[in-house]
Amino acid sequence: MPDVLIQYQAEIVQAILETFIMVGASIVAAVLVGLPVGTLLFLCQKGKVLENKLVHTVLNLLVNIIRSFPFLLLVVFLIPFTRLLVGTAIGTTAAIVPLAIIAIAHYSRLVEQSLLDVPKGVIEAAISMGASVNAIIFKFLYVEARSGLVLGLTTSTISFISYSTIMGVVGGGGIGDFAIRYGYQQFRTDLMMYMIIIMILLVQLIQIIGMTVARKIDKR
């Protein structure tokens, strides 16, 4: 292993851990909140089973507004809210707040798109069998859209990694922050390159896992 990596081993391990925490929390937020929000966005569309113009318009606008922010500005903009929620706006835990919010907005849009790919006829068949809205969601929509949902989460996760790299501005740490502070600002270009390689490997790994799972569960 190159000397520089051994020299900064502890910091690098710490940075990787911070990235994992931030990205992991984003994934949890995406699944727990983004999935229901995306499903609601879909179901409230015109002609769908929960058609509701008000709910759709409000959610749609909210998702668009959050996604319009340059992420760095969103982080800064959310500082008061973050402080209210976790008591501080600095550190890895505080970094989770803006990350979770962008994660929800990002994934909910991809969920909505995946659900749009489910043939209308399948939903009609479900309705004709007397399926409730819950049954339509869990026994038809999610079953039929599952590979799209996994691919969407893969794409989202890779974006979350990218978003997490700028969390250095609020002391969130992570690989990106380490690369800038130790690599770029201290003129250790080699250290920066190694960090970029770690990121590339991480993204590759996630993409491969996502693709493999999506292909395995797709029987269409």
Binding site: P119, G121, V122, S128, V143, E144, I217, K219, R220
Partner: peptide, 14 residues
């Protein structure tokens, strides 16, 4: 009331 369709409308992942 059962129903069948021109495009069958089976759940492809089941």
């Amino acid at each position: 009331i059962g129903m069948i369709f021109q495009q069958f409308n089976l759940v492809a992942n089941k």
